[in-house]
Every structure is written in C-alpha cells, then in structure tokens.
C-alpha cells in the first residue's frame, strides 16, 4: 500500500502544477483581499468567487508540530518518528508539512523554516519544510518584534 498522494482536481490543479515548478501558491480574493489555503472554489471570508493566486516566499515558522511515533498507515511505518508541522507562511496562510532535516527533539514552536519540494511516488512533488538559516538582519528583525 502506497502513501496517499496529491490528487489534483478542478480546484487544486493549479496548486499542484505550480508545485512541479517549485513554487507554493495560495489563493487571494480579489474582492475582499482574503488569503486562503487549502484552495477552495470560493472565498471563505466573503464567499465571492473572484479568486487569484499569490506566490509564497517559501519562508515561514512552525505554528505547531508533533513527532509521530505510531504511523496511521503501513506506508508510513518506516518513517517513524517523523515530524508533522503546521507551518505559518510569512504571507499569513498556514499549511501542513513534514519537517525534514531536523531531530524531532530540536523542533520548537516559532522555529524558522523554509519550503522545499520532495518527490513522491506519483506525478506531483509535496511541499515540505526544513529549518531555515536566518540572515543577521532577519534575526535582528525577529528580536525587535519580540520586544514590541
């Protein structure tokens, strides 16, 4: 049994095809300015249908996380422990991703992460996250923000 894979449909086809190009995009409501993810047919704020797509910088922070020790499916058993995180992208939307390239013990809420695209057994890669090295100016910005 393989892992559940992305299954593009009329609402998500754009998202997944852009993933193949190495970009993560979320929906933006042209009427009220609301940003949303996962993709929908209409805006969850004003229920209008005039939705466009905006690219994410690929930078975000860990909003919450868990290290999974008991896999829900046979296909994930070889991966335990693996980290599932809810990543808050700097544009304001949140998405679930696995956090790679980190010891589960070292993950903290607020940890800076960056997106990357991981190949799957299927046609589409999955957006994933890994710890992000911060530039000194960015570190300074975070320190200043945490003071305010």
């Amino acid at each position: 049994m393989s892992k559940p894979l992305p299954q593009p449909d009329v609402v998500t086809r754009h998202f997944w095809s852009i993933c193949k190009e190495g970009r993560f995009e979320f929906q933006h409501c042209e009427a009220c300015g609301h940003d949303q993810f996962p993709p929908r047919l209409s805006c969850t704020a004003c229920h209008g249908a005039d939705l466009g797509w905006r690219p994410s910088s690929g930078r975000g922070t860990v909003y919450s996380f868990t290290a999974v020790h008991r896999a829900p499916l046979e296909s994930f058993k070889a991966d335990v422990p693996y980290v599932i995180a809810i990543v808050a992208l700097e544009e304001g939307v949140r998405a679930m991703m696995n956090l790679r390239e980190v010891d589960p013990q070292d993950v903290t809420i607020g940890m800076p992460v960056e997106l990357f695209f991981e190949p799957t057994e299927g046609e589409y890669p999955l957006p994933q996250a890994r710890p992000r090295q911060m530039y000194p100016s960015e570190t300074l910005k975070i320190i200043m923000n945490s003071d305010s």
Binding site: P38, S64, T66, L73, F76, M96
Partner: peptide, 19 residues
C-alpha cells in the same frame, strides 16, 4: 490532499492542538 500525504492520523492532529 493537504493532510493525508503527510502521514496524519487522529492522534497526530490532536497532538498539534496539544503542542
């Protein structure tokens, strides 16, 4: 599409709340 490919189960989803 946006949770199950990451290996989510019910305990993991509640764990995200707990954390």
């Amino acid at each position: 599409q946006f949770e199950r490919p990451y290996g989510i189960g019910i305990p993991a989803a509640y764990a995200l709340v707990a954390q």
